[in-house]
Design a protein around this nucleic acid. Structure first.
Length: 470
RNA sequence: GGUCCGGUGGCCGAGUGGUCAGGCAAGGGUCUGCAAAACCCUCUACGGCGGUUCAAUUCCGCCCCGGACCUCCA
């Protein structure tokens, strides 16, 4: 069992990872609030933690990955008012859109995907526990968490109360005992979704849902909690406060992982700034775009900021073209050498170093090309643990196996390259082959140029002529 | 203002106290009827100034620049 290491936001250090329960790793990631299409920034944590879940599943006998759907929220209520649509229509449609978009990025569904509205009872229970333990109080129909009652408040985000107050940019509600106190439960009027509670008809605050759902599905404490870095404060800080105060536990999640922001022109992509591009926008660029965007996300380390550009997306497509060119070549069936697979995946054990892992995947591609086409493996051997000289098909098999953990499909080379069959192209190729057989180079080149003008590129190989779309 | 995270070659992007990242782009070559693909070669970078050290891109300090967060945010 390789030793996993993660940069833990809680300690701000890289640490060796040991599951609380050796046989069962529990992972929670903050999911979407379903009021609008997912933008590129929203997709980053989903892809990053999809790789993490795949890696954990490879290493541990049992993994429970929970990612919530926030389907009660004032942004949803606002959207319903603006559009006149029922809330349930907005949340169910947006949830379906989210599932479709993330599937297009080849993200596997989490093991459990709890909804906030499905856990109102747990939220009320938690809130009652917090009141009973003196960590929360009811005031004017609201229930508020008392940050002053929880000594470790601010530990996760590395702030103290004075610092938080200094920068407060929101008017403090008069019923708060302390300006830092946050809402666990708030009253709903007749036009707003609400549930009966000991404090009257109302709805939950933002943070309590994650405490309730992680508790219900993973327990009072669990291994890893992930999410975007912008959630560190206040969302995750408040989650920790709620869960630890309610259960009297020394921690909520042992390890906190935060992905860096996706930027546009050096600024965070966000709905409020309006500088966002949706996952749908990217997918609309072609059948290649989902996999290329996934590669784009993975070629930057998850904790770094990532400046998105369409040029970078095209670069990722070009790189995948090279992988698919290799896959399109006929190769003998072969067993994937375990050492090669391990070598590619090894960097993931060190805080999910996907860029290094991808570099090694490219090295295996070179080895496969050398084995099946010819050339020298010397440059690659300078990096590999030993002077691998695989038979044709072996490195290819290792690539396909390792790519599964990265979630790069690398599946159907013909589909990637050609976007499905095309009888006209096949006929043109046959005509050109006849011309070539007759050494009528002018006609052969004319046909090829013709196809090129249509975006079709021909490749003459030992096994015949293949083609792809540019 | 406070807290935190970064600044690596034309671009993207790993990593390291001392002869190698890698990719893209560019240039040259091998192969090919010509191409494409593939392979080979070239392009010797680490924000600035000090300090520690035999040796610093890597450790320490200061400065400059960029970004995130400071109760909508992935």
């Amino acid at each position: 069992m390789p030793q996993l290491r993660f940069h833990n936001s809680l300690t701000r250090r890289e640490e060796a990872f040991t599951p609380l329960d050796a046989g069962h790793v529990r992972l929670y990631v903050c999911g979407p609030t379903v009021y609008d299409l997912a933008h590129l920034g929203n997709a980053r944590p989903v892809v990053v933690f999809d790789v993490l879940a795949r890696l954990l599943r490879r290493l541990y006998p049992r993994v429970t990955y929970a990612r919530n759907i926030t389907d009660v929220d004032d942004k949803i209520n606002a959207r319903a008012r603006e559009t006149g649509q029922p809330i349930s229509a907005i949340t169910s449609r947006t949830t379906a859109d989210f599932h479709r978009d993330m599937a297009a990025l080849n993200c596997l569904p989490p093991d459990v995907e709890p909804t906030a509205t499905g856990h109102i009872a747990e939220m009320i229970q938690l809130t009652e526990k917090l009141i009973a333990r003196g960590h929360a109080y009811a005031a004017e129909g609201h229930v508020l968490f008392s940050v002053g009652s929880f000594a470790d408040y601010g530990k996760l985000s590395g702030r103290n109360q004075d610092e938080l107050l200094a920068g407060a940019r929101v008017d403090v509600a008069p019923y708060k005992r302390d300006p830092g106190d946050f809402v666990l439960w708030k009253p709903s009027d007749a036009d707003t979704p609400g549930w009966d509670s000991p404090w009257g008809r109302g709805r939950p605050g933002w943070h309590i849902e994650c405490s309730a759902m992680s508790w219900r599905h993973l327990g009072e404490t669990f291994d890893i909690h992930g999410g975007g870095h912008d959630l560190l404060f206040p969302h995750h800080e408040n989650e920790v406060a709620q869960s630890r105060a309610a259960f009297g536990t020394p921690f909520m999640a042992h390890t906190w992982l935060h992905n860096g922001m996706l930027l546009v022109d050096g600024e965070k992509m966000s709905k409020s700034l309006g500088n966002f591009m949706t996952v749908q926008d990217v997918l609309a660029r072609g059948s290649w775009a989902g996999e290329a965007f996934r590669l784009l996300l993975l070629r930057t380390h998850y904790r770094s900021a990532l400046d998105f550009t369409l040029a970078a997306l095209d670069e990722c497509k070009a790189e995948l073209d090279d992988f698919y060119a290799m896959l399109a070549r006929p190769a003998p069936e072969a067993e994937a050498p375990a050492a090669m697979v391990d070598w590619v995946l090894e960097p993931l054990h060190d805080d999910l170093n996907t860029p290094l892992s991808l570099a090694r995947l490219r090295d295996l591609r070179t080895l496969e090309n050398v084995a099946s086409v010819g050339g020298s493996p010397a440059a690659v051997h300078a990096r590999t643990p030993s002077a691998w000289d695989p038979a044709p098909g072996e490195a290819r098999a290792a690539i396909l196996e390792a790519a599964q953990i990265l979630g790069l499909p690398l599946h159907d080379a013909a589909l990637w390259r050609q976007g499905g069959g095309d009888a006209e192209v096949e006929a043109a190729i046959a005509a050109r082959l006849a011309a070539r057989a007759a050494k009528n180079w002018a006609e052969a080149d004319r046909i090829r140029d013709d196809l090129k003008a249509q975006g079709i590129i021909l490749e003459d190989g030992a096994g015949g002529t293949t083609w792809r779309r540019a």
